[in-house]
Every structure is written in C-alpha cells, then in structure tokens.
Design a protein around this nucleic acid. Structure first.
Lengths: 335, 335
DNA sequence: CTGAAAGCGCTTACAG
DNA sequence: CTGAAAGCGCTTACAG
C-alpha cells in the first residue's frame, strides 16, 4: 500500500480511502491510484485491515450440535452459507463445537477472528442465544428461539403443509396420517415437531379429512414397525405425510413388504427433506423440500447487516416448496 | 497484553514469549504472568498475532467443485476437517469456488487470511495443484494428483476391495459384477474409477471368480435399467459390488421389481458410501465405508505440518473398512 | 479534496 | 533469563 501510494504520488491514507470509498476522491487522483494498484498487483491485506478496523469480515457457522439428521440438507446449508458470505465479501469459518460453554465463546470472541456467528437449528429457549448476547457477539439465527426479540429465519409450516394437504386432497385422498418425529424431539423444544403437527392438523381439518398424527423414533426399524401397524385392518390411510427422514426408509420398505405399491396403493409425501435425497429415492418422492440455500443466505445476510448496520431481511418465514415427483397419485376407489 | 505485562511487572515481549514458549522463562516470572493473565481474563488477539507473525492459523477447505455426489460423506469431510483444524489450533474456512482461476487464488493469497488450503477430490493432473504451487500457497491433497511429488491422502483400493471379495467368496459367491461409475468419470481422470476396477478385478481373479465390470451413469434410472439387464437370462450374478451411490437406489428397486430378494437372492455390497447412508438403507447395506473423517484429519495434519515444518503423516493410503450389514448372505444353491 | 500520524495488539530480531 | 523497540499493513480521527 505504501508502494502504491508512492507510485501514485499520494499518501497512504488516500489509497486507503479509494479502497473504502469513505471519502470523496477526485477523478484524476483516483485513476492514478487505480493504475498504480494494478501495475503493482496490489491486494489489500485482510489481516491488517481487520486489526486496524476491528472487523475481520469473517463470520462463523455453528453446525448443529448433535445433527438432527438433516442429512444432505445440512451440506446445502454449509455450502450456501459459504457462498452467501463470499458474495458479501466475507469468509465463513466452521464451528463444530465449543458453542456450549461461555468460556469457549469468550475465547472465540477474544481471538477477534470472528465478527459474528450464524446459529443453526436453534431451539426454543436455546441457551446459546443468551450467551452470545451476554458476550456482545453479533449473531443470526436459523430457527425460532421463542423470545420474540432477535430476528430469525425459519420454516413457515402453515404454508408448507397447506400445499401438501391441498395436493393430496386434489388427488382424492380423504384419509391420511402425519408421521411426526419422535416424542423426544418434541419434549426437547424442537419447534418444528409441534408447529408442523399443528399446521398439518389445521389443514386436514379445513379439508375435512379423517386424519391422525403419530410420533416415530428416528430409525428405519421404528418406521417399518409403525407403518405395519398403520396399514393393518380396514380403513387404512391412503396417504402418508412423513416428516422423519430417518424413519422413511423403513416405512417404504414396510409398504413394499406388505405388497402395497407406491404410489398406486399408498401415496407418500416427505416433508423437510433435501430435494436431492427426495429425488434420488426410487420412486422419487413427492416432497416439501427444505429450502436450505435460501435459509442459509438469509441468515448470513441478517448477520452481515447487523455488522454493517445495513438493512436486514429481518425475521423471515419460508415455506418448503412442494415438488410433485413420483410417490403420489389418486387413491384407489375402495382402499 | 500490555495490561498483563504491567500487572506482572514485566515487558510485553516476555508475556509474548510465555505464550509462544519460544524462549526459556524463569519459574517465578512465568507464574506471575500466568496469574496476571487469568485475573485479567486475557485472550491473545489472533488477528494481531497473524499480522505480526504472518501466520493466520486459518486454513481453507476447497469443497468439491461439482460435487461428485459424495453425499453425506462430504459433510463428514467438512465436519472432520473443521474438528481437526480446531484441535491443531487452527480455524477452517470454506472455499466453495474461486479455485479455478489463478486470479482468484492470487486474491486469496493476497488477503493473507489463509495460510494454506486442503483440496478435496483431487483428480489426475488436477490444475489446481499447479496453480497453488506457482503461487507458493501451502496445500494438502485428498486424492492422487498423479505427479508423485506432493504428499496426499487417498483410498487404498486394493485393501478396500480385497476384504469385499473375500467376504463374498467366503459366503460362497462365485459369480459377481462390479458396477462402476460412469464412463465419463473414467475419462475425466477421476482416479477411483480406474483404481477400484483394477483392484476388484485383481481380487476376483485371485479367487477365481466368474466376474465382469460394468459402467453405469450416476442416476437411479440408469442403475435400474442396468440391473434388469444383468439379471435376465440364466447364469446371473449372485453378488453385486456397487461403487455408484446415485445408481444404487435404482438397482435395489429393480431387484425388488424382479422379485429378487435382498440378500436371499442377490447380495449387494456398496463401496465408498458414507457409513450413515449405508446403515440408513433398508435393509442396511453391507459396505466398504469411506473413511472421510480419517482422510480429512490426515489432510489437515499434513497441511499444518507443512506450515509449521513439523513432522507430517505424508502420503497415506487408507482402506475403506468393510462393514457387514444386512445386504449379504450365502447364495442359493442354483441361482 | 488530501496529508501526517497515531494506533490496532501482537512478534521478533537486537542487545544485554 | 529479560527488555526496549521496530514493524506487520492497514484505518481513521485530526488538521488543513
């Protein structure tokens, strides 16, 4: 930078100001500087900038503590967050742990390497939120902490389940079961399990369905067992709405084992899966796909906006777009 | 740090030296300093350290350019690399793009934020390797660039396919097909497709199998079609060794469609899948699981060793450990 | 519209 | 074994 200044015949501060744009610079001066910069192949040193400005332009993504089996969607989150950070002129570091104790966070903050953090899979009353606030470290949330204050991005379950129910209703289904996640997740204040269920039930009621909700542990075997139970006897459901990726394989397997064809005998819609996984299944699953890239991007934008006190997207609820694939069809006349 | 020095009654350089351990410090002095440090809750500022020492202790992980469908294994890579970095007192940033042009890399280097980069899914003659070398940016490789010089970590296909073949042989299988990836991947110099095939064939020959290898595009439909072809007529294989995650679902579906039970009628072993995906399938797949955490950790250790000129693991070839699950059994007498 | 200078919080030769 | 001081490459009041 000193070299650039010398070559352009100006002071280093002037060079710095053309870079930041924080001060009006005359046309000729600016051109001289710009010319000098690329003759010298000048690259501003981010570390020096960080030290002087106290902004590293590095943000952290705190990965899910005990990954709730987001599966490939989590990879989408990570990639998209990195992309978003990059397009906002930031870098993204990964935090795999050390978000639990206040000491770890203080350490993170003390290092000065990270300007703020994006929290994934925030739960109701998530302790991390309070800790970050106490430390004065900027943050942004994916998931609703249930406090009302901090802006967050999350799924809009009402607008997610509405289209799912409408779609099945339109095909002629009248009897459906919502396969939720385990009761444990429910108890842990994991928001989606209660909100999704409420949304499903509201919509099922709206269209006058004969429906019910069941919880299912996150395991193929649990899914298979559950599925057999659901399908025995008369009056079995013609449609399954499943928000449980880990159990899904077992459900599909059990269906096949019972000689029930997909989608001829039973329609299945998966909720909150990654689009890639849903389309990789055979037959490809009709599903309400988790918009992980969008969520990640919004969360990063929120954080960067906080840091530069720019305009933020704020709290945003996104529906999971419904994608019609091969696992849904009209029910048979008399199931 | 100034405060710590003042409180301990020493110079800042002494404080710095107790931190780095680069200089012998007397017992009493050290204790005074240590005491002062935690009374003041001192946290060394990583950015200042980086600027002064020209080592940021940040390394980058370059994600697969057009993710070859590593699936969940890629997430394992990312997590494990971050963990490894952390345990070696480094941070991991994610590079999602900008590894292609030399200008991007020069930019990365110029910023001074990143000490080195870990490259995933390195191909034979990977251009990124040369570019990094030209720029003098430290790097570490996952995958064999085929130049012999740079150390890298990769899969040992011989020791991966050996146990797979032995296992099937032990069960009594004599006729097997190796379902490789697409011919395109082969042509692109993607090492695993040629090395895995050679290893499979060597071992199949060793045990005197009646075997063949087929290529298959990375899509369930392609897998299903291929599978139907393989299974028609007499003398069909009793075992399938599949190194093609994307086609796998189609293969399993086609088997079911043909009324062939897994594993009663056909045994299937998946190679290079993530352990999580293999065990989530129904039935759970016997597989040679990609040791992504180990590979990631070794690669990070190699890089950090380069940076601190410490002892490096060097070039390491790891077998994919075979895990017996539910998709393999003895073949029927007369298939 | 531009400059001179202090300072961000460390590291590391140079001296003793 | 310890200190004084220059310097890493920028930013940003303070002055003009």
């Amino acid at each position: 930078m000193k070299d650039v200044a010398a070559r352009a015949g100006v002071s280093v501060s002037t060079v710095s100001y053309v870079l930041s744009g924080d001060r009006p610079i005359s046309g000729p001066t600016r051109s001289k500087i710009l010319a000098a910069m690329d003759e010298l192949q000048f690259r501003p040193n981010a570390v020096a900038r960080a030290l002087a400005s106290k902004r590293s332009r590095v943000i952290a993504l705190a990965l899910s503590p005990h990954s709730r089996g987001l599966g490939l969607a989590e990879l989408d989150f990570v990639r998209s967050a990195a992309d978003a950070a990059r397009s906002l002129d930031h870098h993204l570091v990964l935090l795999t742990e050390g978000m639990d104790s206040e000491a770890d966070l203080a350490h993170l903050r003390g290092q000065g390497l990270v300007d703020g953090v994006v929290l994934m899979e925030v739960r109701l009353g998530d302790p991390r939120v309070d800790q970050l606030r106490r430390l004065g470290l900027a943050f942004s949330l994916i998931g609703n902490p249930g406090e009302g204050e901090a802006p967050f991005v999350d799924i809009d379950f009402d607008r997610t389940l509405g289209p799912v129910v409408d779609q099945l209703e339109g095909l002629g289904h009248r009897r459906a079961v919502f396969v939720n996640q385990g009761a444990g997740a429910h108890a842990a204040g994991y928001g989606p399990v209660v909100r999704a269920q409420r949304a499903f039930e509201d919509h099922a009621r709206r269209v006058g369905w004969d429906f019910r909700t069941v919880f299912c542990e996150a395991h193929p075997r649990a899914g298979a067992e559950l599925c057999r139970g659901l399908m025995e006897g008369t009056g079995r459901p013609t449609a399954l709405v499943v928000m449980n990726d880990q159990a899904l394989g077992g459900i599909l397997q059990a269906l096949a084992g019972l000689g029930l064809g997909l989608p001829e005998d039973v329609s299945v819609v998966s909720v909150l899966t990654s689009a890639l996984e849903a389309s990789r299944a055979v037959p490809a699953l009709s599903s309400a796909d988790l918009p992980s890239p969008q969520l990640a991007r919004l969360a990063v934008e929120n954080l960067v906006a906080t840091l530069s006190s720019g305009p933020a997207p704020g709290t945003v609820l996104l529906p999971c777009p419904f994608n019609l694939r091969e696992s849904t069809s009209r029910p048979k006349e008399n199931p």
